[in-house]
Structure formats: structure tokens, C-alpha cells
């Protein structure tokens, strides 16, 4: 049997909101260590990787070595509309069961339950290599969200140029060119901090459609971390409640190549 209780149900709601427009069906891989999910979007341009450690849950039980729960994202986000912001969530599945039961509770006054039919999803075995990035940028999620949204008004692609001292986001579109520079700002109050760590400068182009999709996960944490390398995918990482010990939602994106 699998059973997990999360007092802050909105965390799961935010995770699914961050994934739903990229992937239609995903497997929840449950083990005694927590929950993992890995999926590529249908065009194989980006990859989503979720890790929820048992620390994020108030209760966590998985009797088997592993269980694979196939979920349709549209149905799951529909179900999570039932979940109020202060509700706790309990997920429960029998070992050979064909459903995953969600219970949303606010105190004892209101209890909602939905049994979701599980799917059998063919999933490819994908691996994420341990990667050291030439450039790491930690910036407020609100800033990331705003930059991606504003830049999308001018073009389809955004260049991220990361150098010692700061990072420049720029767009070159039909109506003209624009750029936003964020200075390395380690000594300001936490919510405004921008940390740019550079071993070697990197400049790469990315599709704003995907960067904007990743921004939907912004409510999960205060800061987002970008990892850039000239020869590996961009990593966009949201730690759950800014605590890596609880887990993370990561997105990987292939750069655009000049033809």
C-alpha cells in the first residue's frame, strides 16, 4: 500500500500546475524514499524531473520496493481544483490497485475524496547525468517570471548571457531589440538576491515558449536556479519551499542552435 499525507496540499497543486502544459501523461514512481517523476514533452525538447523526498510529507508509507502510478495530468489538475489552499492532501493506492485516491481535508469540517483511475503509461528510461555548470544564476522567481513574460512580447527566443558580475537576458524580434541586465547582488535582502556564479561565461538562446512554461512553477519557491553549460541542456530548478532537502522540480531545455 502507498499512503502519503501532505499538510500543505497547495504544494502538490502548484507542482501539477507547473507540469500540466508540458506533459499529458506521467508516471509517479513511488518508493520508500519518496516520489519521483520524469517526463519529456511530446516534442522531446524539454524534460521535467520531480523529486519529492519523504521529509515533505507528514506521513509517508510505501510497502513495496517501488510502485508506478500512471497519471493523466489534465485529470489530476481537474481534481486539484477541489483542493483548497489550506487543505491537507492524502494520497492512497493499494498494491495492485487501479486507482489513486485523493482526500482533501480542512480540519474535520469538509472532506472531499476523489478516486482517479490509473493509466498504463509506456515510459522510457531516461537518466539525468550529474552536471557541473559553468554558470549558475539564482534569482527571485518573480523576476524570472516577469522577464520571460515581458520578453515574449517581442520575440520567440531569448538569449541568456551569463558573465562575471551579472546576467543579461535579451531578445531580438521584428519590432526591435531589448535586453534586461541583472547584476550579481549577494548583499541585499533575501527576496531581492541575485547570485551569479561563473567559471566561464556562457551565452545561449532558448525558446521563450518553454521558459514561460517553466515559470508556471514559480509559486513553488521564492528563488529559481538556472544552470548553464555550452554543451548540456539548460537546467531551471525550483526547490520545494526553497529547501532542497524537501525535493525539487527541475526543467531541462535544449538550446536553440543557429543555422
Amino acid at each position: 500500500m502507498f499512503e502519503a499525507v501532505l499538510s500543505n496540499g497547495s504544494t502538490l497543486k502548484k507542482i501539477f500546475e507547473g507540469i500540466k502544459d508540458l506533459c499529458t501523461d506521467v508516471n509517479f514512481d513511488v518508493s520508500s524514499e519518496g516520489i519521483k517523476l520524469q517526463a519529456m514533452d511530446s516534442s522531446h525538447v524539454s524534460l521535467v524531473s520531480l523529486e519529492l523526498h519523504t521529509d515533505v510529507f507528514e506521513q509517508f508509507r510505501c510497502d513495496r520496493d517501488s510502485m508506478t502510478l500512471g497519471l493523466n495530468m489534465k485529470s489530476v489538475t481537474q481534481i486539484f481544483k477541489i483542493c483548497g489552499n489550506d487543505d491537507s492532501v492524502t494520497m492512497r493506492a493499494e498494491d495492485e490497485g487501479e486507482t489513486l485516491e485523493f482526500t482533501f481535508e480542512k480540519g474535520e469540517d469538509r472532506v472531499s475524496t476523489f478516486e482517479l483511475k490509473l493509466m498504463d503509461i509506456d515510459s522510457e528510461h531516461l537518466g539525468i547525468p550529474d552536471t557541473e555548470y559553468q554558470c549558475n544564476v539564482k534569482l527571485p522567481c518573480s523576476e524570472y517570471q516577469r522577464i520571460c513574460r515581458d520578453m515574449a512580447g517581442f520575440g520567440d527566443n531569448m538569449t541568456i548571457d551569463c558573465q562575471k558580475g551579472g546576467v543579461t537576458f535579451s531578445v531580438d524580434g521584428e519590432v526591435g531589440k531589448g535586453k534586461i541586465f541583472l547584476k550579481h547582488q549577494p548583499n541585499v535582502e533575501e527576496k531581492h538576491k541575485v547570485i551569479v556564479t561563473v567559471k566561464e561565461g556562457v551565452e545561449l538562446d532558448f525558446a521563450l515558449r518553454y521558459l514561460n512554461n517553466f515559470a508556471k512553477a514559480a509559486p513553488l519557491s521564492d528563488h529559481v536556479q538556472l544552470g548553464l553549460n555550452s554543451d548540456t541542456p539548460l537546467s531551471v530548478r525550483f526547490d520545494i519551499e526553497d529547501k532542497a532537502t524537501l525535493g525539487s522540480l527541475k526543467f531541462f531545455l535544449a538550446p536553440k542552435i543557429k543555422e
Binding site: M40, L126, G127, T232, F252, A254, I257, K258, E259
Partner: peptide, 14 residues
Amino acid sequence: GMKQSNLYAFFKAA
């Protein structure tokens, strides 16, 4: 023009 590269081979090989 810009071409969108693909991640499939990268993660498949890992």
C-alpha cells in the same frame, strides 16, 4: 534562422 535541438538522445544515453 534558429533550429530547436532535441534532448532525447542526451537523456536516453545517460
